[in-house]
Design a protein around this nucleic acid. Sequence first.
DNA 1: CCACAGCTTGACATTGTGTCAATAACAAAT
DNA 2: ATTTGTTATTGACACAATGTCAAGCTGTGG
Lengths: 196, 196
Amino acid sequence: MSITNSKGRILEAALALIARRGDARVTMAQIAKAARVSRQAVYLHFADRADLMVALARHVDHKRGLAEEIQRVNSAPTARAALSAMVALQARTNPDIWAVARAVDAVRRTDDAAERSWQDRLQHRLEGCRQLIARLEREGELRKDIDPAAAADLLWTITSLRTWEDLVLQRGWTPEHYQSHITRLLLAALTRDGGL
Amino acid sequence: MSITNSKGRILEAALALIARRGDARVTMAQIAKAARVSRQAVYLHFADRADLMVALARHVDHKRGLAEEIQRVNSAPTARAALSAMVALQARTNPDIWAVARAVDAVRRTDDAAERSWQDRLQHRLEGCRQLIARLEREGELRKDIDPAAAADLLWTITSLRTWEDLVLQRGWTPEHYQSHITRLLLAALTRDGGL
DNA sequence: CCACAGCTTGACATTGTGTCAATAACAAAT
DNA sequence: ATTTGTTATTGACACAATGTCAAGCTGTGG
């Protein structure tokens, strides 16, 4: 799939640079050069650096077909299977999102648009967690001594990018380890029988 | 306790500014001004910004008497009580450390000293988690279907500053909620009977 | 009185961000 | 075929922040 407009070229170039570096300490000039475009052209398409990073996050989501992936989680046969699928989804997609997410996180304190975008994604994922907890409850699998709202928050933070970063990038867990251990932990903490 | 040397004054000033702002986007000039010292004087005491942030982290630790607090965790009567104490320690100290930790995290990718300092703290906390898991195992409380090394990593990430930030700062949990829910989750995930 | 440590002043180089104005290339519309 | 509008380029500029340098001030102890 070739890129037609230079806006797309800029995004792709930024993504490639960030991926290569492993973090988002990339200057606008470098991005422009990589996209074979003048530095000013970048500012024709994006208001500023923060705007570009936010667009980048959306772009990655879209490219991955994130919406469909989430559908797949919800269409799992049981709540417990859905939980497992959710962890698998994170294990699969986090590597690509990570650096960009860090970049947005870094600028969100100064930039309103970035902050809104961040809260948006946060809210979205949180909603997914709430639904999964609601389903667990409906299927009678949720621990009775736990508040559903708190359970959703816990599910949300444990399946977050940050936990993934800690375990996979810092501690060197394999994706398989991450998936199996986190799934087991969640079942133990949130379901009635403590996960088998 | 009054501050005698200006090195201390600079650290205190930086700390106050960061605390007031809630994050570490503070310039060297602002810090110097707050410490009523010339901007260049700051560079007489600290090689650069990263160096200052690292020193700040140490300073906060020292001020809190962190070493003794950790002793107290280890001197709990049982492993389960120690785990609870560890979570309580996080709940109590994280608010003060948070902004500084974020600052160090932000510069650690460009600065070697910051990275080393970060890995140091990380390693230190991880060691504490390992010991706690070992004690759980010794007392026959550790789940048998879990690898001790993985259990330590999980304990480490779940009691991390990041998880605390997610739940307390983002989701608005009270310190009490944080403490009780996280303790319960850890007991459920790591101990034999799933925490009562 | 001298030396030295700690600090100040002011100037400077550098890097990165963001803005602006003038201009070029080119496609589509009329 | 000229006009129009979009998109991009070039080069210059202002600004903020970091970090460096040289010269000089001040007080304390030898």
